[in-house]
Amino acid sequence: MRIKASESLLLVIDIQSRMLPAINQGQEVLAQAIWMVDVAQAIGIPVLATEQYPKGLGHTDSNLLSRIPEQLIMEKIHFSAVIGENLLNIPFSERRQWVIVGTEAHVCVQQTALDLLANGREVFIVDEAVGSRHPRDKALALQRLQQNGAEIVSREMVAFEWLEEANTPLFRDVLKRFIR
């Protein structure tokens, strides 16, 4: 299935200041997540974010925090953002397609994605914008998520599907600013 701009949102899971240094290639995951947020906002895609126990793990990285409205960042204590805090009751959560970036791929990303799938949502995991402390955990999480119905995608796959067509002012703007 294709990702439709009018039916999707971007979910940033737990890219937090104290956890990020422990993530394998954490700065690259952060850079890719920032790119996804910037592209989503340029196209008009809603962006939501979660923070896992911010008292212990710190808040969302400041580079992301400055891009996402505070009311669209949800604090959580469960690994899955769907359980307990119920991600499905906040603005834009009625959208059926969820594009996910964040950490850790094998914990919060995976559990949230599995619960979204169980709740009838279509889930797309942006490969280069998710991470774990250990590469094997990320690889196994992506494999398991795919086996359970999530699609593993690249950032450009998402961007071009959101755009749908060339030769529009929006396409030219996104191409110039983000796809070189």
Rank of each mutant, 00 (worst) to 15 (best):
N24W: 15
N24L: 08
Q25C: 12
Q25L: 13
G26T: 09
G26C: 08
Q27V: 09
Q27A: 07
E28K: 15
E28R: 14
V29D: 02
V29N: 04
V29C: 05
V29Q: 06
L30A: 04
A31R: 13
Q32A: 14
A33R: 05
A33Y: 02
A33K: 02
A33L: 04
I34V: 15
M36K: 04
M36P: 03
M36G: 03
D38A: 12
D38E: 15
D38M: 12
V39E: 05
V39L: 11
A40K: 00
A40N: 00
A40I: 02
A40D: 03
Q41P: 08
A42S: 13
I43M: 11
G44F: 09
G44E: 07
G44M: 06
I45L: 14
I45S: 03
P46L: 07
P46C: 08
P46D: 04
V47M: 00
L48I: 11
L48T: 03
A49H: 03
T50L: 09
E51R: 10
E51P: 05
Q52C: 10
Y53G: 01
Y53S: 07
Y53E: 09
Y53Q: 08
P54M: 11
P54Q: 10
K55F: 11
K55R: 14
K55W: 10
L57I: 11
G58E: 08
T60H: 00
T60D: 02
D61L: 09
D61T: 08
D61Q: 13
D61F: 04
S62E: 15
S62C: 10
N63K: 15
N63L: 14
L64D: 00
I68L: 07
I68E: 00
P69M: 05
P69C: 04
E70V: 14
E70N: 13
Q71C: 06
Q71R: 12
Q71W: 08
L72I: 09
I73Y: 06
E75M: 12
K76F: 05
I77W: 13
H78T: 14
F79D: 03
F79Y: 14
F79A: 11
S80G: 12
S80A: 11
V82I: 13
I83L: 14
N86E: 13
N86Y: 01
N86K: 10
L87Q: 00
L87N: 02
L88R: 00
L88I: 10
L88W: 09
L88F: 11
N89D: 15
N89E: 15
I90C: 03
P91E: 04
P91L: 03
F92I: 00
S93C: 03
E94L: 06
E94F: 08
R95A: 03
Q97E: 15
Q97N: 11
W98V: 15
W98R: 02
V99I: 15
V101H: 02
T103C: 15
T103N: 12
H106Q: 11
H106T: 10
H106W: 06
V107N: 02
C108E: 06
C108K: 04
C108W: 02
V109P: 01
V109W: 01
Q110L: 14
Q110T: 12
Q110H: 10
Q111E: 11
T112G: 08
A113M: 11
D115R: 06
D115L: 01
D115K: 04
L116R: 00
L116T: 02
L116V: 05
L116P: 05
A118P: 07
A118V: 08
A118C: 08
